[in-house]
Write a protein that binds this DNA or RNA. Structure first.
Lengths: 356, 356
DNA sequence: TTGTAAGCGTTATCAC
DNA sequence: GTGATAACGCTTACAA
């Protein structure tokens, strides 16, 4: 039974183009138009544009020619609707801990750059998720809405409960941050516990007895560093450990907290700060009170950001291999989207000893 | 004429749900399913989910109940395909100038956070565009592909030619960076020329005669600062201006360039650096050569990042009102998407005088 | 190697 | 208020 049905999208592209208008939003062209102009069918155009090996070379060139001439670009929404994959990855930053001068290090930014690059190599769109996407249900809804195929969380931040909940669903996601073998999800990060060990060893070497850890141990990564350092301390009877919790990662907040600490406590002869920027804040605050590094105390930061090497004094720090992170995170996420369970990974972690 | 046509999407949701499976990707539910389960038609479900005032209160509640119970989320690709708007904004960073330890200030990151927040308030998705999206044609293709409705460029970087080309199309976009009345596009930024003036005034006040500008004047924003400073210099016969161009914004690169400069040139008694981070690099490099701020030279940075206030010595700097930027950029972009031409805007800009 | 037909899941339009 | 129907623009089966 043949029906005289006229497809609605066989429209007026050929006449539209006569007006010599510059190609613009006002003149949408679709695959049907290109097909007709190239004297082929829509699927053929589709095949050409998706580099299918099945098409004849002449046909391919003709189609490409027409497409180029008309500035045609495949409608990605139609594409995503039709296919199973959305080819989009949602990336969640912990803006909460970082906004309004509350940035710790430029560190997260480098991470983001790496992820962006790794995704673009795989032709995945990067949907940067809004601040406030903080519960598992909302994340799952994003998947259901086919807005993304998976998630990359940069930093556990205070999202651990949600991450564990998310792990119970089959949502594909990876996390930059603390790697805990007990964790139910795939995480990639430096060996934070080892980082803590290294700092502790360094303090022992310098003969320090009163150690101070600065950082919010509500964050898993930072907690592991604290534990690592404490492990070393526990091996020495004459070493005491104190902890200054700073909820706000901002330079200014750390500066104030450090200054206040010195007023009410015995001055430490070793300080382990959660970031190099925080270490700088400590140096500055302690100096104002006449407490100088490395003369009066030993100091270790984290991340090895460039200024750390040139600060005065130059800052001893723990290095993380950020430049690998993006590629690894994306790789592992893609595996999960394919249905393959991905294992967590710990990146090389070492101490860089400088003046402090 | 009635046809016994069975719509293909009236599928087996009710049986599917019996298996007690947790709601997951493996069990897609669509609007048709919800409609049937709630005994209404698809358009009604759509109306409910889009808060149309036209639906009966009982109907609305019934539909919402069913939708919630099944964890239903509207397919965004289908939505975007059907509607004219994609509700997506592409944001382009200048990763090129910022990757791999090449970050200037945490500044761009704050800008991004602001934009992210402003977009989420308007329910716009943020598509973070891949590095390497550097020509106008590619951008226009993104629009044609309906991947985004418009662009936000954070920093002109070295994209000025492309931006001018893009301005000749009717692509909606806004730029954070240099605001030039002659520009064909909408830009938002601090008053970079005034920033330069303020730095120059400060140098005059300190009685400096040999001024050095450090920065890549290939970037429009930085060029304006240079011009602003030079304007002031031109009013004083005894003032000389030199320029140290650093292509790489990295702390380390600036550090090396500054150190090298001092070896081959007369030491400046005033330095204007393109960022606070660069200013820190200068202090560090010059100090190594025994050239100290503020004793031997006056120094002005840019951005007022938090550590600048606590650095030793504390750094005089030009403040930009970053926290407003995101909202303003988004506002102006939305205007353009509505078809309204948006005007450029200059944000308050002032100098914060500190030790240097 | 290419074409035909049938959806993907939504919303706009128009009827009732 | 609500429903039937027709797009939106593409890709996957399947047929030729």
């Amino acid at each position: 039974m043949k029906v005289g049905k006229k497809p609605g999208n066989d429209s007026v592209a050929d006449t539209r183009n006569r007006q010599g208008a510059k190609p613009s939003r006002s003149m949408p062209i679709n695959m049907g138009d290109i097909a007709r102009l190239a004297n082929v069918s829509k699927p053929t155009v589709s095949r050409v544009l998706n580099d299918s090996p099945l098409v004849n070379k002449d046909t391919r060139e003709r189609v490409l020619e027409v497409a180029r001439a008309h500035g045609y670009a495949v409608n990605r929404n139609a594409q995503k609707l039709r296919q199973l994959r959305t080819s989009t990855i949602a990336v969640l930053l912990d803006f909460g801990s970082h906004r309004r001068g509350r940035i710790g290090d430029p560190f997260v930014f480098e991470l983001l750059a790496g992820v962006s690059e790794a995704l673009s190599i795989r032709n995945q769109d990067l949907l940067l998720s809004p601040p406030g996407l903080t519960d598992a249900r909302t994340c799952i809804d994003l998947l259901r809405a086919r807005a993304a195929d998976g998630f990359i969380f940069l930093g556990q931040g205070e999202r651990e409960p949600m991450l564990h909940e998310l792990a119970r669903s089959d949502a594909p996601f990876v996390v930059w941050g603390a790697v805990d073998p007990a964790d139910s999800y795939c995480a990639v990060g430096s060996d934070n516990r080892l980082g803590g060990n290294l700092a502790g060893d360094q303090f022992v070497k310098r003969g320090a007895k009163h150690w101070l850890f600065i950082g919010d141990i509500g964050h898993a990564e930072i907690r592991l560093r604290y534990e690592g350092m404490s492990e070393i301390a526990a091996r020495h009877d004459d070493v005491s450990v104190e902890h200054l919790p700073v909820r706000d990662m901002a330079f200014n907040a750390v500066h104030e907290a450090a200054a206040a600490w010195l007023k009410n406590h015995r001055a430490p002869d070793a300080v382990f700060a959660f970031s190099d920027t925080a270490a700088m804040a400590v140096i500055s605050a302690f100096r104002a009170a006449g407490h100088l590094a490395p003369r009066d105390y030993s100091l270790v930061g984290y991340n090895d950001i460039p200024p750390a090497a040139h600060f005065s004094p130059s800052i001893t720090t723990i290095e993380q291999e950020t430049h690998l992170a993006g590629a690894i995170l994306v790789e592992k996420l893609m595996q999960q989207i394919e249905g393959i369970r991905a294992r967590s990974a710990m990146l090389p972690t070492r101490i860089i000893v400088r003046e402090t």
